[in-house]
Design a protein around this nucleic acid. Structure first.
Lengths: 254, 254
DNA sequence: CCGTTCCGTTGCAAATCTTGCAACAGGCGT
DNA sequence: ACGCCTGTTGCAAGATTTGCAACGGAACGG
């Protein structure tokens, strides 16, 4: 809506691809070099971009520290963390926490597997929304019409043969997940990796986040992983209880 | 330099403090509500801010994922990580990696202590620049005049009795650090926590990053921690070698 | 149940702020 | 030294942004 700001913000994702010099930025934006320069300067003054030795621009430190603050303000995360750690200590596998926002689902916390074989994922990374167990839980909770709207406009990449192929299949899966109150991803994202996930609910019963335990086939079979479901659900419920204020929590003030 | 962009960007740190409604944003920016609205809308379109159920604005997911990409592009981090993990396995204490950018020094990686007692820090957090061992190394490498300029404009908060009190003391400390090629922080930030740090250098010999090992008094005394110095330096040197391309690294392509 | 108040939202005209141009400066390689 | 490439600045034209004022809707209280 605001042209200038719009252009300035468009520079950031562009720089995320890698450092770029003035000319390149101007070209990609479709504006005159002098214009790009002035936008970059403003971004620089705010620390959002950084100029490296060879004069090219990179994303700046301010962005990183801001994002960090943004995550800390998500209080589900704060409450959930100790529970995730405890669960990880019990089962040993990778534990994730994810939230839904706008059209993305993203990991906001993660406790690494203690096994040498780890899966690739990272905090802040948008998840494969059509297949990830946590994504299914988060989307399954949307009202009927929104669910349909979202499903329609998604892409359905076939990561593996077991990936959700299209909107129809996805909506069916969501219905099932909604019904049973938990979700799985059995090799839908990466052939050899399975996940079990459970929802975390706020006081009003709406799903505010979802957590999952993931492990590769080589460590435990899908069946074995499923035996952890009750534990995962109990953990999620415990977090829900605390988050919605039902469970009194002992003060942890500094 | 660009008023519109300047205002828009100023909104972000403001929201980092916590969610705010339109009126509040407009006030803090010193502009009319309608203006603030339009800026927020633009930020929203780019996913930088998010509107929660109660209509208030929060920092958005895009910010988080962008920051994540920004960090991945820092290739020192990628190279250093396995070394940090290995060092952590050997010594058990918390290991940090930090870089200097503009007027900040910030942690870009961290491997947690295996001991139950942990120190508070987080990736992306600006470090206590006047006392942290890594900060000293990073600043000590600047040319004389820049070092002086930076030192003059810093604040010198007395976190503890052993904190660096003023610019003079800081410059002396930097000179010493520069001379000896390593640095410590013995209770300068938190009474009971000590750190040993070593620099990571690029091909041209300039310090591009710094790493440290930190541990609380209750686990090891400062003297004991100092015995780890050779190991820390060797690790830092190994990273330097790889980063500057001196050490051939085996391809780790996916 | 209606009047009041508080927010967010929109159309509009004034003018501020942004834009692209053209010219300049500095570094680099031929 | 000369041309070439990239980043930088002053300026005038005009598009974009701004604040205002008025509207709509929700929440509140009498």
């Amino acid at each position: 809506m605001s042209q200038t700001v719009d252009r300035a913000l468009s520079i950031l994702p562009l720089l995320a691809e890698g450092p770029a010099d003035l000319g390149r930025v101007a070209d990609r934006l479709g504006v005159h070099k002098s214009t790009a320069l002035r936008l970059l300067r403003t971004l620089h003054d705010h620390g959002f971009v950084y100029r490296q030795a060879d004069q090219r621009y990179r994303l700046g430190a301010r962005l990183i520290s801001l994002a960090q603050e943004a995550m800390e303000n998500l209080d589900v995360r704060e409450i959930a963390h100790p529970h995730l750690v405890r669960l990880n200590e019990q089962v040993g596998h990778t534990v994730h926490l994810a939230v839904h926002e706008e059209d993305e689902v993203l990991y906001i916390d993660k406790v690494e597997s203690r096994y040498p074989v780890r899966m690739y994922s990272r905090i802040g990374k948008p998840v494969a929304i059509t297949v990830a167990a946590v994504a299914k839980l988060l989307l399954a909770d949307l009202p009927e019409n929104e669910r349909r709207a979202v499903a329609e406009q998604l892409d359905y990449p076939m990561y593996t043969a077991r990936s959700t192929p299209n909107a129809d299949g996805f909506l069916k899966e969501l219905a099932k997940v909604r019904e049973q109150g938990w979700a799985t991803d059995l090799g839908g994202h990466e052939e050899s990796i399975n996940c079990v996930a459970a929802p975390i609910r706020g006081a009003d019963g709406r799903v505010v986040a979802a957590m999952s335990v993931s492990a590769p086939n080589v460590v435990v079979t899908a069946d074995e992983l499923l035996t952890l479901l009750p534990l995962v659900r109990r953990t999620a419920d415990a977090i829900s209880g605390e988050y919605s204020g039902r469970t009194p929590v002992k003060e942890v003030t500094a």
